[in-house]
Design a protein around this nucleic acid. Structure first.
Length: 886
RNA sequence: GCGGGCGUGGUGGAACGGUAGACACAAGCGACUUAAAAUCGCUAGGGCAUUGCCCGUGCGGGUUCGAUUCCCGCCGCCCGCACCA
C-alpha cells in the first residue's frame, strides 16, 4: 500500500481537472447559476497566507455548489494598476508594465498548485489594454450621462505619492497607501457624482440581508445622512453683503436654547473680517495651522473669536446672539455656520463655559432634576423628554418628534426649511500617475474639454518615449512630460489638442471587474445577456478593510452602469452576500538586545521544549553556545532545567500577531505546499477558527492537519483493499455516515467550516474504529471523501479513485442524508435534579411521558436526591431532557 | 466621545434556553521498537473524595423547572467613526 504523497497526487488531479475543463464556467442558462467571487489580488509577485485563506473559502463554496448541481462561476484576475509598480520602477529601474506582468506570471505559478477551482480561462488584469479600454468606454458613457463632471476643487494632496486622494482614501489625515500627511491643494479634477446616489446607496443597504451588519453600518455612517433645518439669522452691524448668516442644524427643537452663532474660519464672513482686522487674521491663521494628526485633533482646544457682530433670534428679536469665529467649525459641512446650544451639546457646552456664554435649558428629563450648567443634557433622540422651552409639538415627546415638529413649525412661519444633508462627497477620480487607466478626454484650445471618440479607444499608455525609456525616477507624472503622447487631434474640430494626462484612481478598476468576469472578452464593457445570467455575485469573499472604499464604489458603479445601459436593472446591488474573513496570524518570537531593543526571531531559530508539563521556548543558539545538540533529548532537558539561570536564552512568545516581514513571523504558502502539500494548507486554514475570526498559524497545527490527512488516506486505502463480509456493526456505521452527511452539509451551508472539519474528524474516528463489513466501510469512505472534497480536493479525488468512484469526485453529486437513517430508536435523556445533571436514562424514542416519569422517579440518583419526599415538579422535554424539582 | 463586537480549560475553539468544554493543539502516561522517529491506545476544567460531592463560561443582579445563551448594571479587550452642527 502506498503512503500519502501530496507531491505526487496533487499535480495529477490538477491536470485531470484541467483536462476535463471541470471548472470552466459554461454559459448554459438551463442550469441554476452560482457566482462566487474572492476579491482579486494586487500582483505583488508573492501570494501570502491571507490569500490562501481567502481563496480557499470561496473555493469550498464553489466546489460545494458545483457538486450541488449549480453552474458555477469562480473567476480570478489581478488588480494590476497602481503605485507599487511605479515605485519599483523608481527604485530598481525597469518598467511598471514588465514588472506587473512578471509578477502576475509568478503569482499564477504560485496559485495553481493550491488547486483552487478558478476558471482561469476568464483571467484578466486591469492593466490589460482590453480591460482598461472598455473602462474608458464606460467613462465616456458616464460622462455623457452626466455621472462624471470636472470642477476646480480643494483636494487632498499626497506629497509622497505626488497625487490626489479621495476623502475615503485619507485616514487620520494621512494617505491610505503612503502614510504621508495629506496637504490641501486646489486642482481641476474629474468627479463621479456618487453623492447623487446617497439615498439609494443608503437605502439599498437594507436589502443586503447577507452582508455583515458591521459593514452596512460603516457604510451608513460614511454616507452620513442627517435631517435638519436650514435657516438664516439676520445680522446686526455686519459688513455689507452679510446681513444674513445661513446655518444648518439637526436640532431645531433646541433653537430657544441658542446662545451664540459660530462660523468657520473659512466662512466668507470670516474672510471679509480678516481682511480689515489683523486680530481676526491672526486668529484664523492660527486655526488653519492646526495639525492634522489624530493626536492634534483630539487634544485641540475649542477656540473662539468674538467678532462683535450679533444676530437676532428668529423667534425673539429682542434676543441678540454674539457671532464667534470658532476653530471647530468645518466650512465644507452644512453651511459652515452653526448656532450653539450649550445646554444640549457637549462641544457647545465646553465653548460656552470657556467664554462665559449663557446656558439655557430647552428640555429636561421627565422626572426632572438636572443641572444644565454643570453638564449638558444629551439623551438619545428616541427618548421621551419634557420640553421647557418648546418650539412645537407636545410638551412631552422624543427629540426625534420634536425635530420634525420644529421643522414644520419653522417652515410654516417662514423661518428656513427642512433639508437632508449627507457626509458623502463626490468621488474625485483623477490621479497624477502613469500606471493607471488614462482618462479618455482631450483638451482643445478651440473646443475646450472634449471626450475621445469611442472608435479611438483604447487610449493606450505609451510604453516608452519613441524608443527611449521613460524615466520613472523623476517625481511627478511621466505622461505629463512625455514629448509626443500628449499631442493629438481634437475629436471635435480636428485641430491640434492635448490629451488629459491624469489617469483614473485604481478603485475605478476594481469597481466593475466582477461584471467584466461574466463576459471577459466582450467587445463592449459587458454583454447584457451574460451579465443578466450571472449577475449579481451570489457570494463575495474578502477582507473587512474594503468595507467602505471598494464596496461602496462598486455599489455606485453598478447603478451608474445600469443608467448607461451596461447592466440590467436587477444588478443594482453587485454582491448579494458578503463574507469578510479574518486574518491569518502567527506568533512573534522576541528577545531583547543589550541595548534594550526588541529582536525578532524566525520560527526556525527557536525551539520549544516540553518541560514539567509546560513548554520552555529558547533560542537554538543557546545550544551552540553551550556546545550542545538541539536534537539530543538529554541536552534539551539540560537546557530546560538550566533555563532559569540563563534568562537570555528565553524567548518571549507574542501570540496571534499580524504577520509582518519586519517581525519575522511571515509564513510562506509556497514553502508550506512544498513541505505538506496544498490540501494540508487548505485544511489547516479552515480548521481552527470560524472563518470570520483571525486564525493563528502554528507549525504544530499544520503538522497535525498533515498527519490527519495521512491517516484518512491510509484508512481509505486499506478499506479499498479489504474483503470483510457484513457484520452486526454495518447499520451503526451507516447511521454515522448519514449523520455526518447531514451535519457537514449544514455546517458548510452556514460558513461553519471549522465545525464541518471537527465533524469530519469525528466521522473519521468512527470509520477507523468501526468493525463493519467492507461494503459499508467503502460506502462510508466514499462519503467521507466527498464531504472532504471541498476542503481537500486532491486527496478526495485520490480516495475516490482508489474506491472505484465513478468519474471525478468534483463532478459527483453531493451526497444526501437518508432521513430514515437519521431516526433513532432510542434516546438517552439526561436527568437533572434542580437543574443539575444527576444521571441519565436511555428510553425508546416514542415512550410516553408518564412512562418516562415513572422510570425517572425510580432512578437511583433521583431517589437519593428526593430522599422519600414527593417532587415539587417534574419536567419532561421529549427527546431532550428531564428535570426533577425537589 | 459615538457606534459595533467579544470575554468559556495551558491554547484555538464547540454548544436550536436543555448533559458546558465537541473537535483539535500543547501536555502526560502506556504499547510497538535495540533506540529514536512514525504509528496506535489511554488520561486530562479546578477542588475534595470511598460510592460520590462542591465550585466553574469576565464581575454583580434578574427572568426561568433549567442561562455560556435572554434582560439590567458594571469591568476589561478589540474594531470602526470622530470637532459632521
Amino acid at each position: 500500500m502506498s503512503r500519502y504523497d501530496p507531491a505526487e497526487i496533487e499535480p495529477k488531479w490538477q491536470a485531470a481537472w484541467d483536462e476535463a475543463l471541470t471548472f470552466k464556467a459554461s454559459d448554459d442558462t438551463s442550469k441554476p447559476k452560482y457566482y462566487v467571487l474572492s476579491m482579486f489580488p494586487y500582483p505583488s509577485g508573492r501570494i501570502h497566507i491571507g490569500h490562501v485563506r481567502n481563496y480557499t473559502l470561496s473555493d469550498v463554496i464553489a466546489r460545494y455548489k458545483l457538486a450541488g448541481g449549480h453552474n458555477v462561476l469562480h473567476p480570478m484576475g489581478f488588480d494590476a494598476f497602481g503605485m507599487p509598480a511605479e515605485n519599483a520602477a523608481m527604485a530598481n529601474g525597469g518598467h511598471p508594465k514588465d514588472w506587473t506582468y512578471g509578477n502576475i506570471d509568478d503569482m499564477v505559478a504560485q496559485m495553481k498548485p493550491m488547486g483552487w477551482s478558478f476558471d482561469w480561462s476568464r483571467k484578466f488584469a486591469t492593466c490589460d489594454e482590453d480591460y482598461y479600454g472598455q473602462q474608458q468606454a464606460l467613462f465616456l458613457d458616464m460622462l455623457e450621462a452626466g455621472l462624471i463632471y470636472r470642477k476646480n476643487a480643494m483636494v487632498n494632496w499626497d506629497p509622497v505619492d505626488m497625487t490626489v486622494l479621495a476623502n475615503e482614501q485619507v485616514e487620520n489625515g494621512r494617505g491610505w497607501r503612503s502614510g504621508a500627511l495629506v496637504e490641501r491643494k486646489e486642482l481641476t479634477q474629474w468627479f463621479f457624482r456618487i453623492s447623487d446616489f446617497s439615498d439609494e446607496l443608503l437605502e439599498g443597504l437594507d436589502t443586503l440581508d447577507d452582508w455583515p451588519a458591521k459593514v452596512k453600518l460603516m457604510q451608513a455612517n460614511w454616507i452620513g445622512r442627517s435631517r435638519g433645518l436650514q435657516f438664516a439669522f439676520s445680522t446686526v452691524n455686519a459688513p455689507e453683503g452679510h446681513d444674513r448668516i445661513e446655518v444648518y442644524t439637526t436640532r431645531p427643537d433646541t433653537l430657544l436654547g441658542a446662545s451664540f452663532v459660530g462660523i468657520s474660519p473659512d466662512h466668507p464672513l470670516a474672510k471679509v473680517l480678516e481682511r480689515d482686522n489683523p486680530e481676526v487674521a491672526a486668529f484664523t491663521a492660527e486655526c488653519r495651522k492646526g495639525g492634522t494628526t489624530e493626536e492634534a485633533i483630539e487634544t485641540a482646544e475649542k477656540l473662539g473669536f468674538d467678532t462683535g457682530i450679533t444676530v437676532r433670534h428668529p423667534f425673539d428679536t429682542a434676543v441678540e446672539l454674539p457671532v464667534y469665529i470658532a476653530n471647530f467649525i468645518l466650512m465644507d459641512y452644512g453651511t459652515g455656520a452653526v448656532f450653539g446650544c450649550p445646554g444640549h451639546d457637549a462641544r457647545d457646552h465646553e465653548f460656552a463655559t470657556k467664554y462665559g456664554l449663557p446656558i439655557v435649558e430647552t428640555f429636561e428629563p421627565i422626572e426632572g432634576g438636572i443641572d444644565i450648567k454643570a453638564e449638558p443634557f444629551v439623551p438619545q433622540k428616541t427618548e421621551k423628554v419634557r420640553y421647557t422651552r418648546l418650539i412645537a409639538g407636545e410638551e412631552i415627546q422624543t427629540s426625534e418628534e420634536a425635530v420634525e415638529a420644529a421643522v414644520a413649525f419653522c417652515e410654516a412661519n417662514g423661518v428656513g426649511q427642512g433639508v437632508t444633508k449627507y457626509r458623502l462627497r463626490d468621488w474625485g477620480l483623477s490621479r497624477q500617475r502613469y500606471w493607471g487607466c488614462p482618462i479618455p478626454v482631450v483638451h482643445c484650445e478651440t473646443c475646450g474639454t472634449v471626450p475621445e471618440k469611442k472608435e479611438n479607444l483604447p487610449i493606450a499608455l505609451p510604453y516608452d518615449n519613441g524608443g527611449e525609456a521613460i524615466d520613472f525616477a523623476i517625481p511627478g507624472n511621466p505622461l505629463d512630460r512625455h514629448p509626443t503622447w500628449r499631442d493629438c487631434a481634437c475629436p471635435s474640430c480636428g485641430g491640434a489638442a492635448k490629451r488629459e494626462t491624469d489617469t483614473m484612481d485604481t478603485f475605478v478598476d476594481s469597481s466593475w471587474y466582477f461584471a467584466r468576469f461574466t463576459a471577459p472578452r466582450a467587445k463592449t464593457p459587458t454583454d447584457m445577456d451574460k451579465a443578466g445570467y450571472w449577475m449579481t455575485v451570489d457570494q463575495y469573499v474578502g477582507g473587512i478593510e474594503h468595507a467602505i472604499l471598494h464596496l461602496l464604489y462598486s455599489r455606485f458603479f453598478t447603478r451608474a452602469m445600469i443608467q448607461t445601459g451596461h447592466l440590467p436593472e436587477s444588478c443594482a446591488e453587485p454582491f448579494k452576500a458578503l463574507f469578510t474573513q479574518g486574518m491569518v496570524t502567527h506568533a512573534i518570537y522576541q528577545t531583547t538586545s543589550d541595548a534594550g531593543r526588541p529582536v525578532y526571531h524566525y520560527p526556525e531559530e527557536v525551539v520549544s521544549i516540553p518541560f514539567e508539563g509546560k513548554s520552555v521556548v529558547v533560542l537554538k543558539k543557546a545550544f551552540e553556545e553551550q556546545g550542545m545538540d538541539v536534537d539530543n533529548e538529554a541536552h534539551r532537558q539540560a537546557v530546560a532545567t538550566a533555563f532559569h539561570d540563563f534568562p537570555h536564552w528565553g524567548v518571549e512568545v507574542v501570540p496571534s500577531a499580524k504577520m509582518s516581514k519586519s517581525k519575522n513571523n511571515v509564513v510562506d504558502p509556497v514553502a508550506i505546499i512544498e513541505q505538506y502539500g496544498a490540501d494540508t494548507a487548505r485544511w489547516f486554514v479552515l480548521s481552527d477558527s470560524p472563518p470570520e475570526r483571525d486564525v493563528e498559524w502554528t507549525a504544530s497545527g499544520a503538522e497535525a492537519a498533515n498527519r490527519h490527512l495521512g491517516r484518512v488516506f491510509r484508512a481509505c486505502a486499506e478499506i479499498a483493499e479489504s474483503e470483510v463480509p457484513p457484520t452486526g456493526e454495518d447499520e451503526a456505521l451507516a447511521r454515522e455516515m448519514h449523520k455526518a452527511i447531514r451535519d457537514v452539509t449544514l455546517a458548510i451551508e452556514s460558513f461553519g467550516f471549522n465545525a464541518a472539519i471537527a465533524r469530519l474528524y469525528a466521522f473519521t474516528n468512527a470509520l477507523t474504529k468501526s468493525r463493519a463489513g467492507s461494503e459499508t466501510k467503502r460506502a462510508a469512505a466514499k462519503a467521507l471523501a466527498q464531504l472532504m472534497s471541498p476542503m481537500t480536493p486532491h486527496l478526495s479525488e485520490e480516495i475516490w479513485s482508489l474506491l472505484g468512484g465513478e468519474g471525478l469526485i468534483a463532478n459527483a453529486p453531493w451526497p444526501v442524508a437518508d432521513e430514515a437513517m437519521l431516526v433513532e430508536d432510542s434516546v438517552t435523556l439526561p436527568i437533572q435534579v434542580n437543574g443539575k445533571r444527576r444521571g441519565e436514562l436511555t428510553v425508546p424514542v416514542d415512550m410516553a411521558k408518564d412512562e418516562i416519569e415513572k422510570l425517572v422517579l425510580a432512578h437511583s440518583a433521583v431517589e437519593r436526591a428526593l430522599n422519600g419526599a414527593a417532587p415539587k415538579k417534574l419536567i419532561v422535554v421529549p427527546g431532550r431532557i428531564v428535570n426533577v424539582v425537589a
